[in-house]
Simulated assay, not measured.
Amino acid sequence: MIVAVVPCTDRTLWDEHVDRFQGHPQQLWGWGQTKAAHGWSVDRVLLVAGGTTVGCAQLLIRRLPFPFKALVYIPRGPMCSAADAPAVLDSLAAHAATRHGGVALSIEPDWDADSDFAGAVAAAGFRKTENTVLIPRTLILDLGRTDDELMADMSKSTRANIRKSMRSEVEFRKVASADELEQVLAIYHETAERAGFGIHEDQYYRDIFANLGEGSPIIAAFDGSRVLAFVWLARSGATAFELYGGVSVEGQKQRVNYGVKWAALQAMRADGCSRYDFNGLLNDGISDFKKQFAKHENLLLGTWDKPLSPLYPAYAKAMPLARRGLQGARRAVKAAAGRVRPAAARLLKR
């Protein structure tokens, strides 16, 4: 099957295709729009065979120091059937090489590790890598289940904390104003400092809220006009994906972080989503909290690279640093470039 790569420049058409393929919210137009304002460029393409669109992918491109040129990355994509995946991946890799000069095409699909897609990815010449951005070990809930069925998979104490917070005077609803958003950001700073993780500058989060619109709901616990806790999501037609969460000290005491998580599940079901992804599990306190909401875990396919340049081995060594933001990694990438044989560098210039 010959698959043509066709650019898409229409937001409405693009998001319709994402939902048609039951795509992930990080493939929505607004997500790419935000990344484009913060160091990446975006290329949205439809994959067409015989007049039929068989897939689509939002490519994020990050320029790298000479001689590596660029990283081309597809978060939670591409979108296509397992049968069409080999041809779609071949065409995307060729496009990434010729259009963007990529040293590699890196993909982190929203596909299960034990699905038919695994063989298709390997057959297309991709290699499994541990240079991961989005964590493949996660927890995904089926929102088609009833409340009782969802609660049955939770611990007894989790159910009790949810019911206690839902009976309180706290109101659970979507954030609707700029002032409420600023309260959310203040709590996120507080949570990050308490838990010891890094965050972006505030404008990044404001851009997500503005660019995704209804595709990025924030469910918050309110005591009057004060925000006590929140769950910030991105959602497509099928999938709700947790981006961020936080709780104030007062909110922790009242256990409203349990209630706001339950309210987020309810809200995403009401919005029509069929699956709810908690966005990664690590061996930390935040993950321990997430795991209270189900007895199972999910494993997605992980991170796969298609080498597009003879410089890929040197690039791959520098990538663990580059994935942390690329600024500090620029020195490491340049050092790796200095160790590349001149002949390989000449090949890249052709």
Rank of each mutant, 00 (worst) to 15 (best):
D153N: 13
R159H: 08
A160W: 10
G144L: 02
R159Y: 09
R159F: 10
V175L: 12
H189P: 08
E149N: 02
I162H: 13
R163E: 05
L141W: 06
Y188D: 06
M154E: 05
E182R: 14
A176D: 13
E180H: 04
A152K: 12
A152Q: 15
I162D: 09
S155H: 15
E171V: 14
E149I: 01
K174I: 08
L150I: 07
D179E: 15
D148F: 06
S165C: 15
D148M: 05
T191S: 08
H189C: 10
D179Y: 08
I162K: 12
L139C: 11
T158L: 10
Y188P: 01
E169Y: 14
L150K: 12
D147G: 03
I140M: 07
I187R: 00
D148R: 06
D147C: 03
M151H: 06
L185Q: 00
R159T: 09
R163Y: 04
I187N: 02
S155D: 15
L185C: 01
T146V: 02
F172D: 08
L181A: 03
Q183S: 03
D147Q: 07
E190Y: 09
Q183K: 04
K164T: 13
D148Y: 03
G144H: 03
D179N: 09
M151V: 06
R173F: 05
F172G: 13
E180D: 11
A186C: 02
L143K: 01
F172C: 09
S155N: 15
S157G: 04
E182K: 08
A186D: 08
I187S: 00
L141P: 07
R173S: 04
L139V: 08
A178P: 05
V175N: 12
K156N: 03
E182D: 14
E171N: 04
L139S: 09
D142M: 03
M154R: 06
V184T: 07
F172P: 07
A178D: 13
D142C: 08
E182S: 10
V184A: 01
T191G: 00
L150Q: 10
A178I: 08
R159W: 05
R163M: 01
G144N: 10
A186Y: 01
V184L: 04
Y188H: 11
S177M: 15
S165I: 15
M154G: 06
D142E: 05
A178M: 07
E171Y: 05
A152E: 14
K156W: 02
V175C: 11
R167V: 11
R167C: 09
R173I: 01
S177H: 13
L141T: 02
K174C: 13
E171W: 06
V175F: 13
E180A: 05
L139N: 09
R145F: 06
V184K: 03
S155T: 15
T158C: 15
R163K: 08
S155F: 14
I140F: 01
I162Y: 12
Y188K: 00
D148H: 06
N161C: 02
A152N: 11
A178L: 09
D142H: 01
D142A: 01
D179R: 06
L143T: 00
N161E: 01
N161T: 00
D147W: 01
R145K: 14
E182N: 12
M166S: 11
S177F: 11
N161D: 09
A160V: 10
E190T: 07
L181G: 01
K156E: 09
T191Q: 07
